[in-house]
Design a protein around this nucleic acid. Sequence first.
DNA 1: CTTTCTCTAATCGTATGACTTTATCGCAGG
DNA 2: CCTGCGATAAAGTCATACGATTAGAGAAAG
Lengths: 256, 256
Amino acid sequence: MRIRDFSRPTTLNEDRLFGQVAQKLAVAIISGRIHAGELLPNEDDLRADISVSRTAYREAVKVLTAKGLVEARPRSGTRAAPRERWNLLDPDVLSWHLEADPNEKFIRDLFELRRFVEPSAARLAAQRRSAADIARIEAAYRGMVENPPYAEVTIRADLAFHEAIFAAAQNAALQCLASAVAATLQWSMLLKTGDEAAYVESLPDHEHVLTAIVERDGDLAAARMAGLVIDSLNTTLASLGSEVPEAKIARIKHTK
Amino acid sequence: MRIRDFSRPTTLNEDRLFGQVAQKLAVAIISGRIHAGELLPNEDDLRADISVSRTAYREAVKVLTAKGLVEARPRSGTRAAPRERWNLLDPDVLSWHLEADPNEKFIRDLFELRRFVEPSAARLAAQRRSAADIARIEAAYRGMVENPPYAEVTIRADLAFHEAIFAAAQNAALQCLASAVAATLQWSMLLKTGDEAAYVESLPDHEHVLTAIVERDGDLAAARMAGLVIDSLNTTLASLGSEVPEAKIARIKHTK
DNA sequence: CTTTCTCTAATCGTATGACTTTATCGCAGG
DNA sequence: CCTGCGATAAAGTCATACGATTAGAGAAAG
């Protein structure tokens, strides 16, 4: 049982039949149960799980094709695509990753990306934010403070905090990466539930980011956001049970 | 007539019927001919263009749903989604943008994203590159030098150059942004075909990035890549016929 | 024995029509 | 004015049939 459906609501309806099939197949591919070989558990094993018509099945496959997870060719069949082709930043693909087992390398990759992107987003937010943006970020921050750690509302507020900053940056392309950030946050929550200390410690850091944005100090906002990301990575990887010397060095470098 | 199908081959087959329908609808939505209101030109106007069955139409819609362009609800109909929901970084969505009229704000957004991301990618590439990576980047660079400017092979080589650098960075999530970079490059090509001077001038800059990566100098590679991006933005926006004072200031800041 | 060609068969793609589910809207009743 | 219930429109699902494409086997040629 996992957290799901936060961030922006994925248009791919999950209580629709084809959506369930898509999810089932996607998780099977992402988790590696289906390699880059033949997909389609013979189209009949599917019928075993849930009795679905060819229509529903095909529409599910179309969704997966659109996200790069599978490739269908006339005679050879529908195959699971190699990982390089997956749209890893697609919100659905990211959320399906949460259903599979944690893939440490991928989580690191996501955090690394976030480390490059989110400080820049914070800088832009500081430069471009409107009063409404501030209100939105503040509201999210209050949601984080006023609710118990790791409650659903709290997590939602955390996601909203980061998303609001992206929104304030006024860059549509950049904003699409908010779902990737949301994914890293959810990984954190999944992995370190119970470690309330780390969460509480991060609260002031969030506030500092907020004040930097309010004061329109781009460099400061970026630096503080970088610190936030690094800390998050460290505690997350710690929960994952691995050493992270390199990341710790990086923090010093980025926050100066 | 536009450049198309570079970068990684999109799995969404264009000579398949549902693919054509998807593209047609997507371009209509992206170009703004269909607003965030009712989609579905009544399912019959489509039959006017190309006579398509409900099956093909529905599968096309599923693809668009998967990419966030439309939302279908039982009673109210299938509507074009608001832009915030689009997966702007999806390779197909990006390439569909190339079919629509240039949207200056979006092009700027893409370049801005690229400015944040690609230097970091270059830095990682310098730190992590293998001999094979170098060979791939070099081969692409040679393709750029040895062919006439703006020829198809040349453009392809340019895209390959940048993509190879992303590959060398060894970060799957980051690599997904290569298609966004490819999109900006294609916009450049579309807008400033004929300006051979700008292209020829950029060649040494590419070579400098390459040598920095060869020498494993991360900071240098990042700085040089940043310069490349800014130059590209400037000449591109110039062709678009607008002033770009702010971007020029940025260059000084980033290359230091 | 190797190469090339053709032809088959498996699989995806497309077409149709009927039926089910969902949720909106309007009317009737409280 | 509010409440609820049923008509209704649109998407969703199912079943079936046929067409298009091509991998791969087997035949024919060298």
